[in-house]
Design a protein around this nucleic acid. Structure first.
Lengths: 342, 342
DNA sequence: CTCATGAATGTGACCGATAACAATCGAGGC
DNA sequence: GCCTCGATTGTTATCGGTCACATTCATGAG
């Protein structure tokens, strides 16, 4: 259709030539500049379409000093939370017209995070989102190279950087209050690893809810997010006769716990109620289907982007709360019920 | 320590000035050009360090027409396979000194894939990796805008594009042969959705292994990757008395199946053996621990990168096999054993 | 001793866009 | 009828690198 079969892609000059205007006018049309005559605009757009022209993002970034790419520093893990968060951010970015560039870290330590941000900065990303579920990462976020707009997720100790996170404390409260409302005397807790912020917050929320109700606070069982740790904790709890309700810090641990209880002949929820956290896709299909606390990762992604765009000054510069926390919600399924009558 | 507190980052000219050479010499040092005197090189490197200079990737890409970023077209899902593949690619890219830019698609149809590749091309990525586990996506890969080096993963129908994938057929064979070796008369199969290439290949491998052994081929049970479909199939199978071995197309389905069998009082592996596929992190902690087929996603990532780099001509231009398939391996755990003595 | 050769380095164009500023033109105010 | 002003468009510099080519200088061959 054109002259060259598979010649290299059209550039702005080609469009300008075809439309009979200057390249600057083409640029104006592309960027919705107000003072372009309608007829000119149409002509340019027609040329753009005819040449199948797409502006070169690199050149754009170089000249305009703002790219349409957001960097994400993530954790090299397949764990549900971080993975879902990444997807949420990608989705939000895509809808906002941004691309995302990711760097996954094997260890979330200070130098790793700083280095990752530097690597992203080299690519002139517009800003970065740091998924920092670990204490170490959150600390690192404090000592970032200045000049790079950054938002921290799943963390709340990021110094003065804007932070987006799910309200883990409230989530834990929801779980515990649900169980107390059902009539349980108290609620045990199988926590996540202590160097994860989410694990700490869930412990705090659990404890706060119990204390607010004036209940006895059992010792924390320490898990590591894995189903195995849930399984092991489940065996321990099954051996004591006095446990009627357990709040697991994530669904995988709850999965392991359900299995252990089942093996020991402990019925869920008749004998013991179990509540998890995350609402992983499997949760609804466990036996019994798991009552759990759902986190809205899409909303997290959206808020990250909103915070970042605000930081970039491209969006309403009105002050949004600097540390908005996304409210989680309780999903009641069959694994929780009233305590045994006895 | 410097003059300006938070002045803008140093550029190549600043380094050149400080080192007392031309900007071109700095560029040579940065790119390991051979003809630079050692002493000059040292001087430049010292200046680089002193100014904490990092070359601007955008400018580099613009001028050199080759960036150090690889685009990945992925599927907007938290499913283990695609997510693990993405991580594997990221890891390999990182080790090769590349960054990755991702676009996740909600639906993997033709126009979506083409559009995603275009968006990445705008960013002048060096090449793209398309994670195309669905038939539709694989088809789309055939009609890509030319000029963008592309590699397709988890697919084998990508026309003449280089393809990297795990040998699903061989994986299914491993599973089936393992069960036959244990003495089972035949093996049932709970498949994944039929529009997934992996699901089809696993069906093919399962059938081929049975036929090669001259065994009866039971009807395929259709699943959708979810634990629920495994659960439902498990109940069906439990109701027939004649099933002694089941090969599930993924671990999540196997998880559901284990639960269903357990509920019906069918013991695993004493009464029925179950084998999964993927080796998800939970697999080792299910009850019983699941025998499954492990896919080496790191190797997949590495091969993707190798194929892409070859395509880019930056690496050994010697002809690597165009469609290398990564061999999977069987992980034997407790969910498989000899059939009941009957 | 002269010249070709190759290593080391510098100069200016260029990649493809945006930014800043200049130029042109028609309309409204005096 | 002249001048100012805003809308529209064009020209040139610039972003920060790499590429192509020119230049300089020391070395070994003839």
């Amino acid at each position: 259709m054109s002259q060259q079969p598979a010649a290299r892609a059209a550039v702005i000059k080609d469009v300008a030539r075809l439309a009979g205007v200057s390249h600057q006018t083409v640029s104006r049309v592309l960027n919705d500049h107000p003072s372009v005559r309608d007829e000119t605009r149409e002509r340019v757009l027609r040329a753009v379409k005819q040449l199948n022209y797409r502006p070169n993002a690199l050149a754009r970034g170089l000249a305009g000093r703002r790219s349409r790419v957001i960097g994400v520093v993530s954790f090299d893990t397949i764990l549900y939370g971080p993975a879902a968060t990444l997807l949420g951010i990608e989705r939000a970015a895509r809808h906002a017209g941004y691309g995302i560039s990711i760097v996954a870290l094997e260890r979330l330590d200070r130098s790793g995070v700083v280095d990752a941000v530097n690597r992203l900065a080299e690519q002139s990303v517009a800003g970065v989102v740091i998924i920092a579920p670990l204490l170490t990462a959150a600390a690192a976020a404090g000592s970032l190279p200045s000049g790079v707009p950054a938002v921290v997720v799943e963390s709340d100790m990021a110094g003065d950087l804007p932070t987006v996170s799910v309200d883990q404390v409230a989530g834990a409260r929801l779980a515990v209050e649900h169980l107390l409302d059902l009539g349980h005397e108290t609620v045990w807790h199988l926590s996540g690893p202590k160097d994860w912020l989410e694990a700490r917050d869930r412990i705090d929320g659990w404890r706060a809810a119990l204390e607010a109700a004036g209940r006895r606070v059992p010792p924390v069982l320490a898990g590591d997010w894995s189903p195995r740790s849930g399984y092991e904790a489940g065996r321990q709890l099954a051996d004591r006769g006095d446990v009627t309700a357990v709040f697991c810090a994530n669904d995988q641990q709850a999965l392991g716990m359900l299995r252990a209880l089942h093996e020991r002949g402990v019925r869920v929820p008749e004998d013991v109620s179990v509540v998890g956290f995350d609402d992983i896709p499997e949760a609804a299909y466990l036996s019994p289907p798991l009552t759990t606390v759902r986190q809205d990762f899409d909303e997290v992604g959206r808020r990250c982007l909103a915070a970042l765009l605000e930081l970039l000054g491209v969006d309403r510069p009105l002050g949004v709360a600097r540390h908005p926390r996304v409210p989680p919600s309780l999903v009641v399924r069959a694994s929780s019920g009233p305590p045994p009558a006895a």
